[in-house]
Design a protein around this nucleic acid. Structure first.
Length: 430
RNA sequence: GGAGGAUUAGGCUAAUUGGUAAGUCAGCGGUCUUGAAAACCGCCGCCCUCUGGGCUUGGGGGUUCGAGUCCCUCAUCCUCCGCCA
């Protein structure tokens, strides 16, 4: 049995079952660790017994070989081994069954929160870390992004619904150009100033990839699935980009490896109908620039801070007011050990909108995906993985339209974007 | 979609035509050295209840006392053909 199937280290569960149970409880997950330990125990006992049988077979089989070479009759040994062979086969089948059950249990266990994460019961216990910029004071009643976008002909949700259904964006004219400009601006920022290598990944991935980053098995209902080809539409570039190095041993000198990638993102949003669905707030398809890093275990929490800063720079260069929120234990995603969200202020909607989520996964994803490096002693160890949005465009577009709107209904383009858009203001008649 | 070839550990490469994976390079540790190189020794895929065992030749199955080797099946890559943006 190989260790790579496990996400939480079975050794850690063996040694500190209470700590794991307690840590998962802060994530609002109740797990019966004893059930897992019992399976593990059962597996190891039967495994030992079978290994002994195999040892017997190996030695006797070698003896048969020697006898045959010397011309001695070995029929008795062969007959004996026939029985041993069938017992081994039975045991192996039983072992496989136990192993599968154990694997199902382990693969469904979420990551444990880092000790520094504030313990909380729900999203209300998230902690605001800092704010940047100050919301504009309007001398008029600010419009929301839908009113602005429709009057400026930037997008068309009615026709999008005709083509695809609700929750799919259709950008038109300067709206489409603005969207493309945002993507290019962010990619240029991360590659030129933050040292990331640009990636343009596949948008469809197989089940192994989805399991590696932790989307499967828990999030299966939230992803689009193509039954005919057994492929999943990616909910984020995190999935294909992290899986670039699945089953690889990375060179220690190359760490940290930093990738940034644009991708379309596809989410079924099952169960979230009705809330926050207006306009660009929640979509089945959207664009996002993602940052992914692979690093030495000792560095991951330092790198998390810089990752958050990289994402913040997008918002600062666009001069948009935002706040940084640290998620409490209960609000952490399945695979995350620690996570910060960036939220933009939207004066038209009058609320904070999440545009980025920056997480450290520790060795959780690396363990599932078997991504390792050789450490200073030449031993293979799992890397740590991190990723963060840098950033998602729909809510960024909302914030730009609503923060940069003028009294006459026009919208000024943030200065940093103008080289990309080629225009500096959006007017009704242009 | 069809035909043929290929897949051995981090890389590269062997294995009596069925007899239980041999080497090499890189890397890590050690001896030696003022230091380095060279040389030599050990480690260098995974698991276990670790002075010892077991597993591992792309994945899964079969035949056999015994499979890298024979059979079936799937995956990936290469070449050719067909179709097509």
């Amino acid at each position: 049995m190989k260790g790579k199937e496990f996400m939480l280290d079975i050794h850690v569960i063996r040694e500190e079952p209470e700590r794991i149970e307690k840590a998962l409880r802060t994530k609002n997950i109740s797990v019966d660790v004893n059930k897992i330990l019992a399976l593990d125990q059962q597996f190891r006992e039967l495994s030992k017994e079978t290994d002994d049988l195999k040892h017997l077979r190996n030695t006797v089989t070698q003896a048969i070989n020697d006898k045959k070479k010397k011309g001695i009759d070995a029929r008795e040994d062969i007959l004996k081994m026939r029985d041993v062979g069938s017992r081994i086969k039975e045991n192996d089948q039983q072992l496989l069954l136990i192993q599968q059950t154990l694997k199902e249990q382990l693969i469904s266990l979420p990551n444990t929160p880092h000790e520094s994460v504030p313990v909380g019961k729900n999203e209300k216990d998230n902690v605001e870390v800092r704010r940047w910029g100050s919301p504009q004071k309007f001398t008029f009643n600010p419009k929301n992004h839908l009113e602005l976008g429709e009057s400026l002909n930037l997008f068309d949700f009615h026709r999008a619904a005709k083509i695809s259904g609700s929750g799919f964006p259709l950008y038109t004219g300067k709206g489409a150009k603005l969207e493309r400009s945002l993507i290019n601006f962010m990619l240029d920022l991360h590659t030129q100033e933050h040292g990331y290598t640009e990636i343009l990944p596949p948008f469809l991935v197989n089940s192994n990839s989805s399991t590696g980053t932790g989307q499967l098995p828990k999030m299966a209902d939230d992803m689009y699935y193509l039954d005919q080809d057994d492929l999943w539409l990616i909910p984020t570039a995190e999935v294909p980009v992290t899986n670039i190095h699945r089953d690889e041993i990375l060179n220690r000198e190359n760490l940290p490896i930093k990738y940034t990638a644009y991708s379309g993102c596809f989410r079924r949003e099952a169960g979230s109908y009705g809330k926050d669905t207006r306009g660009f707030q929640r979509l089945h398809q959207f664009n996002k620039v993602e940052m992914v890093q692979f690093c030495h275990p000792d560095e991951s929490y330092t790198i998390l801070d810089s990752l958050v800063n990289n994402a913040e720079m997008v918002l600062q260069k666009l001069i948009l007011p935002y706040r940084v929120v640290e998620l409490c234990t209960a609000d952490l995603s399945f695979a995350a050990a620690k996570c910060y969200d960036l939220e933009l202020w939207a004066p038209g909607e009058e609320k904070w909108l999440e545009v980025s989520s920056c997480s450290n996964f520790g060795d959780f994803q690396a363990r599932r995906s078997n991504i390792r490096f050789k450490d200073e002693q030449g031993k293979n160890r799992f890397v740590h993985t991190l990723n963060g949005s840098g950033v998602a465009t729909p809510r960024l577009l909302i914030a730009i339209l609503e923060n940069y709107q003028n009294e006459d209904g026009s919208v000024t383009i943030p200065e940093i974007l103008r080289p990309y858009t080629g225009f500096d203001i959006l007017r009704q008649d242009s």
